[in-house]
């Protein structure tokens, strides 16, 4: 549960940064200090906690700012208020750098490395997990309607059964973005009627799919609820959704002062694939374990602490 909301964190950044500036010269003598930020969702809290526990074990003193909004994270890092944040290639490409071209995972990573490098930020090695949009269907419905496995198959089924009511649930963000629903419907030839489209809170999309109230819906590929709610993620066979591979982004200045950080973080990133991330998210969201205990468990079972 993330208590700090946007307003609190915005207020908190200033004194925290000031404090860090005062304390940093003192602390540097004994141990390196690193300032990490987490955005306001489970995966981000988990990644930040993993980093925190891991780096503390390696002798860093770690300050974490929790619950930053995406819009605030980048300015805070460029302002030298944050040293490390887990970023997604797609977010940097689309939101921060306004690149509209659709690139695959590798090209996305190359491009953000170049673009952000010019701004004094270094992308470390990426994880293999891709937390992008996807369409999910209730497993039972997917099997019933001719075992739908890809987004194209869903379009075919819908076109062949125009009398069936296909309620499509999505979050308001996806519904409103040009690179969201309209583009997707065009690429795959979905013809939804107005009453079949329902935008709602992201958390409700999963509930609607679990209750089989929705035929399909937009989910995030690493979300723990996908397995827990028995949902089937459809393959994006026409590569519509941008790649959102996660990687630690560090201020280049900081990396030059602490070059060993690169190799240390690479060891952690190498362990995080899609299946693992989904499982870790599920332990927090579904089993309601604390991020700290999940992080400790994971790191110690892989010998990192």
């Amino acid at each position: 549960m993330s208590l700090p909301t946007l307003r609190w964190t915005r207020l908190a950044v200033v004194p925290l940064a000031a404090l860090a500036l005062c304390v940093a010269p003192l602390a540097q003598a004994q141990q390196p200090n690193i300032r990490v930020a987490a955005k306001a969702f489970t995966e981000q809290r988990l990644l930040a906690t993993l980093t925190q526990v891991y780096l503390q074990h390696l002798g860093y003193s770690v300050d974490v700012t929790w619950g930053l909004s995406t819009a605030l994270t980048r300015p805070a890092q460029l302002n030298d208020e944050i040293d490390l944040v887990w970023e997604y290639t797609g977010t940097s490409l689309i939101v921060y750098n306004h690149v509209e071209e659709v690139l695959d995972a590798e090209a996305s990573y190359q491009r953000v490395t170049e673009l952000d490098g010019e701004k004094g930020l270094t992308w470390l090695a990426p994880t293999s997990f891709n937390n992008t949009y996807a369409i999910a269907m209730p497993e039972e419905i997917a099997q019933r309607d001719g075992d739908i496995r890809t987004m194209s198959q869903m379009a075919e089924w819908m076109a062949a059964h125009p009398d069936q009511f296909h309620l499509f649930a999505m979050d308001y963000d996806f519904a409103g973005r040009a690179d969201g629903l309209p583009g997707m419907a065009e690429r795959y030839g979905y013809r939804f009627s107005r009453s079949e489209l329902r935008s709602m809170d992201p958390g409700l999309v999963y509930l609607a799919l679990r209750n089989q109230q929705a035929y399909g819906g937009i989910v995030y590929t690493t979300d723990g609820r996908i397995d827990a709610f028995d949902l089937r993620v459809l393959e994006d066979d026409k590569n519509y959704f941008p790649a959102y591979n996660a990687a630690p982004v560090v201020r280049t200045d900081y990396l030059q002062a602490h070059p060993e950080l690169r190799e240390q973080m690479d060891r952690l990133s190498a362990l995080l694939d899609e299946e693992t991330m989904r499982g870790l998210n599920a332990r927090v969201d579904i089993e309601q374990q604390s991020t700290t205990s999940v992080a400790r468990d994971f790191l110690s079972s892989h010998g990192l602490i």
């Binding site: 993330s2 208590l3 909301t5 307003r7 809170d201 958390g203 409700l204 999963y206 609820r225 969201d285």
Partner: peptide, 20 residues
Amino acid sequence: AVIGAGGLGLLILNGIGQSN
């Protein structure tokens, strides 16, 4: 809570957000 003011609405909003 929707506009970030906090309060007990946050419990409800978190419940919605986490499908809990």
